[in-house]
Structure formats: structure tokens, C-alpha cells
């Protein structure tokens, strides 16, 4: 068959529509089944540990490095204009509003999203998902809902830690590379940052959690024929989650700005 630009676009458009439809159905199933017994609290606790505790080192290293790099770049750039005193404010606000939640989510999309898609995909290939259904239980309840809830619970907490560590990283660079006093840096952050800076970033994390967990579960559940599809599903899950986070961040930022103005 000859591949033309129009046929390629048609395939791409069909795939995106299939993805969107599948996501809607998956969310519908979760809402339909999630409020009925039994509730799998043990499985949720397992997922919170796997998604949260196990991701903590990666998130903290990323946040610390980001804060340090930002402080260094802002410091070096603003030094020429005598703007070094603005570094604490700029670093804090950028981390709280954007970098903390976004980088934490991207790290989680890579680590947890890939894990979810490949684990569920492998379970599909080995008929374990079929076995869950055949034994009179629901894979939505046992597999999908605990993973989505774990991401929703854990991501805001991880982002809060990332905010803290990112600012500490900025403060260290401020002190040792830019000669900004610790006390001054700390006071500037406290004085110039407000609760809306934090809430704007915090609010996004719930959306980002859904952007990670839902597509990852969806792509995992689409695996049918063999291990090659597990790899494809994993790749698609990470790409979809990352794009949703990055593109969604713009629109969410816009929404939070509007809410702030309104308040």
C-alpha cells in the first residue's frame, strides 16, 4: 500500500480519536465502579508506596538540580543589571508555579507511567487481566483505580517536596556562587512568595496525575498480541503523558491566572 501524506494524517487522526474515546470510556468505567464495594485499600497502599516513596529520590534530585541551575542562570543574567536581589523571588515563583509540579510530573510520567503501561500490558499478554475478570472481579477496580488514586494522592505531596528542595538548591547556589546571604535569600522568598504561587502549582498536580495514570492504564489495557506491543504501549504512554503535561500546563497556567485575577 502506498503511504501518502493524507493517508498518514488520516491514520494519525483516527488514532488520536481512538485514544480520546478510550480515555473517556476508561474514566466512565472508573466512575461507574469506583464508588461500589469492595474497595481495595491494600492495593492502594501498595501503589502509594511504589509511586510515591520509590519515586522520591528521583524527584528530589531533579528538583534540587533544577533549583540550582535556575538560581545560577538568573544570577548570572541579572548580575549585569544589578538584579541579583530578585533571584530569590524569581527562583521561588518559577519553582512553585511551574518547575516543581511540571518536572515532578514529567519524572513520574517517565518512571511510573512507563511502569504502569508495561505492567498492565504484560498482564494482558499473560492473560492475567482475563483471569481477574474470569474470577468474578474487576480489573478496573483492582488495577486501574488504585493506580489513578495513588497518582492523585502522591503527586501533590511529591511536588511539595520538590518545591522545598528546589528552593533549597537555589538558596545554596545563591549563597555559594552569587554571594547572596542565606538569611536575605530566605526572607526574600518568604516576603515575595504568596499562597497563590503555591496553590497555582499545587492545583495543577491533580490534573497532571490524571494525565499520567489514565493514558498509561489505557495503553496498557490495549495490549493484545505479544511482548512487542508492551514496548509500543509503554512508549505511547510516556509520550502521551509528557505531551499532556506540557501542553496542559499552558492552559492550566492560563486558567489559574484567570482565577487569581478573579479572586
Amino acid at each position: 500500500m502506498i503511504t501518502t501524506p493524507s493517508s498518514t494524517f488520516k491514520d494519525w487522526a483516527e488514532e488520536q480519536l481512538y485514544f480520546l474515546g478510550g480515555i473517556v470510556y476508561l474514566i466512565r468505567d472508573c466512575l461507574r465502579e469506583g464508588f461500589h464495594r469492595p474497595f481495595y485499600w491494600g492495593l492502594l497502599a501498595d501503589q502509594i508506596y511504589l509511586v510515591g516513596v520509590r519515586s522520591m529520590p528521583l524527584v528530589l534530585i531533579t528538583a534540587g538540580s533544577t533549583g540550582m541551575v535556575m538560581a545560577l542562570q538568573y544570577g548570572l543574567g541579572l548580575e549585569k543589571f544589578g538584579g541579583k536581589p530578585y533571584v530569590p523571588r524569581l527562583v521561588a515563583s518559577t519553582i512553585l508555579r511551574e518547575m516543581g509540579p511540571v518536572f515532578t510530573s514529567l519524572m513520574l510520567a517517565a518512571r511510573v507511567g512507563a511502569g504502569i503501561a508495561s505492567e498492565i500490558g504484560s498482564m494482558m499478554v499473560t492473560q492475567q487481566i482475563d483471569a481477574i475478570r474470569a474470577l468474578g472481579t474487576s480489573p478496573i477496580k483492582r488495577i486501574v483505580i488504585p493506580r489513578i488514586l495513588a497518582c492523585l494522592i502522591v503527586l501533590p505531596i511529591l511536588a511539595a517536596f520538590a518545591n522545598l528542595v528546589g528552593n533549597i538548591g537555589g538558596m545554596l547556589i545563591g549563597a555559594y556562587e552569587l554571594n547572596i546571604d542565606f538569611q536575605f535569600y530566605y526572607q526574600r522568598v518568604i516576603e515575595t512568595s504568596n499562597i497563590m504561587d503555591y496553590l497555582a502549582g499545587f492545583g495543577k498536580t491533580f490534573f497532571f496525575a490524571l494525565f499520567i495514570a489514565v493514558p498509561s492504564c489505557f495503553y496498557g489495557l490495549q495490549v493484545k498480541n505479544g511482548t512487542q506491543e508492551v514496548g509500543i504501549a509503554t512508549r505511547k504512554a510516556v509520550v502521551a503523558s509528557s505531551l499532556l503535561i506540557l501542553v496542559g500546563d499552558f492552559f492550566l497556567s492560563k486558567v489559574f491566572w484567570i482565577i487569581e485575577k478573579w479572586l
Partner: peptide
Amino acid sequence: YAFQGGALF
């Protein structure tokens, strides 16, 4: 339902 490969968890 007894699966061909067992389908054990």
C-alpha cells in the same frame, strides 16, 4: 475457567 497457560498472577 481454566486458561490454557494457567494465567496465574
